[in-house]
Amino acid sequence: MTFPDKIVDGDIRSIARGISIVESGGIESDNLLNELYNRNCSYIIGVTGPPGAGKSSLINLLIDEFKHHFRKIAILAVDPSSPFTGGALLGDRIRMQQHAMSESVFIRSMASRGHIGGISGATKDAIKIVSAAGYDLVIVETVGVGQSEIDIVKLSDTTVLILVPGYGDEIQVMKSGIMEIGEVFVVNKSDKSGSEKLATTVKWLLKENYRNKSYLPPVILSSVTNNTGIEDIVKAVLNHKNYIEKNGIDRDKIQERIKDDINILLERKINEFIQHHLKYPENIEKWVNLVISKKSTPYEIIREIKDNMILDIREDI
């Protein structure tokens, strides 16, 4: 059996290896993804929210509930890499360890590796791996996000935004970009004071401002400590799934993702091509020195190398 076949067959070690390969990038990753492209059949849920909102703990409880509706569940949990050492402490898994031995659950921790949108650059490719392996539900947990990390929307069919009381007044809620991305809103830690008020504020804001007039996201109160609201979250997700399937939004999303994949590959190719003709990065020192010695400016340099590059490419063709 070839390596991609083993992944499709559901072999855990191969799936895990496959994710490492797409995380490392390069030609090996391209070849693997090429083999496994267009096999995706998973429903993808993004779970996002500020640090400490209870994303991992909620997912831990949601897994049991989702098991009634899906055959195999994969969790991709992203935590931040250190911008200084490149290392990472991946701790989301601690909250989900009770599922470690479950044959229908696969959990993988991923480091963000310098990517700033709340997920890692390889998350979308890791989804393709588990999807090809037959996981019909993929849950992606983002790093703890603040006000504008919204990459998760592109990846997921349903985005669940987890909020908790104590993060400031309603102005904070109003200005935050992440407020625009949820399709299911959860106010977690409902055992804490302020949660009812936050839920009311969010409900009011959504009613006034939500971008989509034919779908109003529900706002659900939940508590991991008291194990409440879990069924409601699952119901709300399935409800939204129903909505996007009925309205063909799921197909639009797939189109957008393919467009994105092509764009990223194209950008990479163009970059490699241009860098080759610019002799970049070999030349960067030279250019910096020209600017430091006041012989040129970055603007002049760019104008000049652009003209030279065009000549160079013409000769090449």
Binding site: S81, S82, T85, G86, G87, A88, L89, L90, G91, R93, I94, Q97, A100, S109, A111
Partner: peptide, 11 residues
């Protein structure tokens, strides 16, 4: 982690 590795901690 500070040595640049990705560390998974299970508790």
């Amino acid at each position: 982690r500070n040595a640049g590795m990705e560390v998974i901690y299970t508790g």
